[in-house]
């Protein structure tokens, strides 16, 4: 269980986060939702230990993660907004990279085996020896997802992984890959987005943030079985509730 309490962060004179607190249960898929620029990514970067908060704590199973960084980092995997693939490595090499970095003592056959499994999960096993520049944008993002999956970490942080995709089919494929990954692996996922459809397609619970000064406007449960029909009455009702909470800040 992750418990975020009193998170505060400023960049110079600009206060981005002010006393943010929320919790995420084990194996829960929680979306941090809010308008562009509201500080969602800053929260995720703090959770990923890439930024230090001015105040506040991140407790994982009661232990202050940011105070015990090495142990904490091992519990986390990240799916980045842009794929961040190493151009000189193949698809398989990029997925194996995460394991090589985190577990340098893992035997090579195990590294490759786990990387292959992760590629299988995102449907890219036939592209194992392809270089990133030869893949489409959607495929690169699935490699990004596979790289995080290969780590088999307890917590997955996803920073708007669909934001860099233009094609609707790429977006649908990636949403499908994330949903089936979660069904299979049941990881604790914290997903950041400003898209209502992504939030309701994937989440168990949505935490809605306001624009700056950032505060939590409310939390919504999505008690609908996956895969979700975005035109169903239940889902449309949740979408409307999100829009009401934001009061016209998003379309």
């Amino acid at each position: 269980m992750i418990e975020v309490s009193g998170l505060t962060k400023s960049f110079g004179a600009l206060r981005v986060l002010s006393d943010i607190s929320f919790r995420v249960d084990r194996d829960e898929f929680v979306t941090i939702f809010g308008p562009s620029g509201c500080g969602k990514t800053t929260i995720l970067r703090i959770l990923a230990a890439l930024e230090t908060p001015d105040a506040g704590r991140v407790l994982v199973d009661g232990v202050d993660g940011l105070a015990r960084l090495d142990d904490y980092k091992k519990k986390i995997s990240i799916v980045w907004q842009d794929p961040r693939l190493l151009p000189w490595r193949t698809t398989l090499g990029n997925v194996a990279f995460s394991l090589e970095m985190r577990n340098p003592d893992l035997p090579r056959p195990d590294v490759l085996g786990r990387a292959c499994q992760a590629l299988e999960l995102v449907g890219l096993r036939p592209f194992a020896s392809t270089l990133p520049r030869q893949l489409s944008g959607g495929m690169r993002q699935r490699v990004n997802l596979a790289r995080a999956l290969a780590l088999d970490a307890e917590i997955m942080l996803m920073d708007e992984p669909l934001a860099s995709l233009n094609e609707i089919t790429d977006k649908r494929q990636l949403i499908g890959a994330i949903a089936s990954m979660w069904e299979l692996k049941r990881k604790t996922v914290i997903y950041v987005t400003h898209s209502v459809s992504e939030a309701v397609s994937l989440s168990d619970r949505i935490v809605v943030f306001s624009d700056k000064p950032t505060r939590i406007l409310g939390e919504l449960r999505v008690p609908v079985a996956r895969p979700r029909d975005l035109t169903s009455k239940e889902v449309v009702d949740i979408c409307n509730q999100i829009r009401q909470l934001l009061g016209g800040l998003i379309a």
């Binding site: 890439l50 960084l69 842009d82 995460s98 970095m101």
Partner: peptide
């Protein structure tokens, strides 16, 4: 720098990065 950050999220070992 984004690739270095991606690697830094995986390990604190600067020599490995």
């Amino acid at each position: 720098a984004t690739l270095v950050e991606m690697a830094a999220a995986l390990t604190s070992d600067r020599a490995r990065i």
